[in-house]
Simulated scan of single mutants.
Amino acid sequence: MTSTAPTYPTVVPTQPPALLLDGITKTYRSKAGSVDALRGVTYHFAQGSFTAVMGPSGSGKSTLLQCAAGLDQPTTGTVVLGGTTLSGLNEVALTKLRRNEMGFVFQAYNLLPSLTVYDNVALPLRLTGRRPSRGDVHRVLDQVGLQDKAKRRPAELSGGQQQRVAIARALITRPSVFFADEPTGALDSGTSRQILSLLREATERAGQTVVMVTHDPVAAAYAERVLFLSDGLIAGHLDRGTPAQIAAAMSSLER
């Protein structure tokens, strides 16, 4: 595992990063005291990259994703997505940015049970005030192998099929950045491979950026780079690692 100090890289990227975290801290306060979930994380996610974020329980990986996606506000520091600084946006503008520039895939599929597969996929466009094109909806359904399920409802699908609908829903707006939080946590190994292949295709075919939080070394091996967190700091990274190498790196963090 390569050690990585929590500072911005000295090598300037050849193009602006899709996502930049600059000095991100996050402190949660309660009657029991303060907890520092992130303690000054600086990192750039290159355009068209697939990065898995891993770390022991409590390392800050889910907090990092929440702050990066504008779902939570960092205590200090700056998040820049596609040239837009998130801290300068009000809630309306932030919601618009999330709908247009970000895609979300979580362990919970969050599909609307009363809507068909087609309408679940079309929903993000409707929420932005755009009229969904039948061709666009069927294109992304075909991309995830579910064009023949367009008229079904979520309850009629397997868990893996529902997750593929969730990915199609995220793809429909052609977001610049995908955020995935344990997207295969509830799926069997065969279905997990299909889901992870779809995420990798988003970077290879469409140049989209994927940031995925996972605890699974097999899932992380689909990413180009695994970014390791420990105690709210970047502890290192591993490029093109095998599941065994990733598991070994995780073990060293948990000692």
Rank of each mutant, 00 (worst) to 15 (best):
P16E: 15
A150R: 10
P124D: 14
L157R: 07
I195L: 14
A5M: 11
V210G: 03
M1C: 04
T4E: 05
G48W: 04
M250Q: 15
E201A: 15
V105G: 06
L97D: 10
R153T: 15
A108V: 00
T2C: 01
A108S: 15
E101Y: 15
A220W: 01
E224M: 07
H138E: 12
P124I: 06
R169T: 09
S34C: 12
H215C: 09
V218F: 03
L127D: 12
V213N: 00
S176L: 11
T116D: 04
R98Y: 15
T184K: 03
E182Q: 00
T78G: 01
D188A: 07
G83A: 07
V213I: 06
L141C: 10
V144T: 01
T173S: 13
L187R: 08
T184L: 00
G33T: 03
P74F: 13
T75F: 13
S230E: 03
G103Y: 10
S34F: 05
S62L: 09
A248D: 12
T84N: 08
R152C: 07
L64Q: 10
A220Y: 07
A166T: 09
R153Y: 14
G40S: 03
L141N: 06
L123N: 08
D148V: 00
T128S: 12
L19R: 02
P17A: 00
A5I: 13
V121N: 03
G241Q: 14
T191F: 02
V35H: 06
L125H: 12
T85G: 06
G160L: 00
R255L: 12
Q162D: 11
V226T: 11
T10V: 11
G58A: 11
G236Q: 06
V53C: 06
P74R: 06
E101I: 02
S114Q: 14
L233R: 15
G23H: 04
P243Y: 02
L71V: 10
S192F: 14
R205H: 09
V105M: 02
L253P: 05
L94Q: 01
P183D: 13
L199T: 04
Q161K: 00
G129C: 09
T51R: 06
G159W: 04
K31C: 01
H138T: 07
T209M: 04
L115A: 06
R152L: 10
V218N: 02
A166C: 05
L127T: 15
L20E: 13
V12Q: 14
H138K: 10
V165W: 06
L64T: 09
L187Q: 06
P56V: 12
P175R: 08
